[in-house]
Simulated scan of single mutants.
Amino acid sequence: MTTVQQSFPVPPQVLWNALPAGVTAIGGQGPFYDAQRGYVTCRTGMTFFSWGQVVTAMVSPAAQGSTITVQTALKFGVFDWGEGKRLGTRFATAVAYAAGTAALT
């Protein structure tokens, strides 16, 4: 399992509205949005590196705006060869772009 977390200077609702851009950026299939709990989950297809991954992104309030936490887990296998981190980073970057902001460092 890999986790990528980034904070943004925008309200959580802005990030929530930008989550579909993240799903599209990673080629997510069958997204399930749970607005009550503030997360989306989807699957990726098979690649050269793996049989695919299950990706979950959660939006939460933070001191200076909001935070997105992207977790990836292999559908099958032991090593993801860095694919999880690449997917998490691509997802968060697409959400930042769609929200019109950059991550806080």
Rank of each mutant, 00 (worst) to 15 (best):
T3E: 10
T3K: 10
T3S: 07
Q5I: 13
Q5H: 11
Q6L: 14
F8K: 00
F8D: 03
F8M: 07
F8L: 08
F8S: 01
V10N: 10
V10K: 09
P11Y: 06
P11G: 12
P11K: 07
P12V: 06
P12T: 03
P12F: 01
P12S: 05
Q13V: 12
V14E: 01
W16N: 02
N17L: 06
A18W: 00
P20R: 06
P20D: 13
G22K: 01
G22Y: 00
G22H: 03
T24E: 12
T24S: 13
T24V: 10
T24W: 03
A25D: 08
A25L: 01
A25K: 10
I26G: 04
G27S: 05
G27D: 07
G28W: 02
G30S: 09
P31S: 00
P31Q: 12
F32Y: 11
F32Q: 14
F32R: 15
Y33H: 14
Q36W: 05
R37D: 15
R37T: 14
G38P: 07
G38E: 07
Y39A: 09
Y39K: 10
V40C: 04
T41Q: 13
C42R: 03
C42F: 11
R43T: 15
T44L: 08
G45Q: 15
M46D: 08
M46K: 15
T47R: 11
T47K: 12
T47Y: 08
T47I: 06
F48L: 12
F49Q: 11
S50D: 15
G52N: 11
Q53E: 15
T56F: 07
A57D: 05
M58S: 12
M58F: 07
M58R: 15
S60R: 13
S60W: 01
P61F: 08
Q64L: 04
Q64W: 04
G65Q: 11
G65H: 06
S66G: 06
S66E: 05
T69V: 15
T69G: 03
Q71G: 06
Q71A: 14
A73V: 09
A73W: 01
L74S: 01
K75S: 14
K75A: 09
F76N: 14
G77V: 11
G77Y: 02
G77Q: 12
F79I: 05
D80V: 07
D80N: 11
G82W: 02
E83D: 07
E83M: 13
E83G: 05
G84E: 04
R86H: 05
R86M: 13
L87G: 00
L87S: 02
G88M: 00
T89G: 09
R90A: 13
F91Q: 01
A92E: 08
T93L: 02
V95M: 03
V95C: 03
A96H: 03
Y97Q: 15
A98R: 06
A99D: 05
G100E: 08
A102L: 13
A102G: 13
A103C: 00
L104D: 02
L104E: 07
L104Q: 14
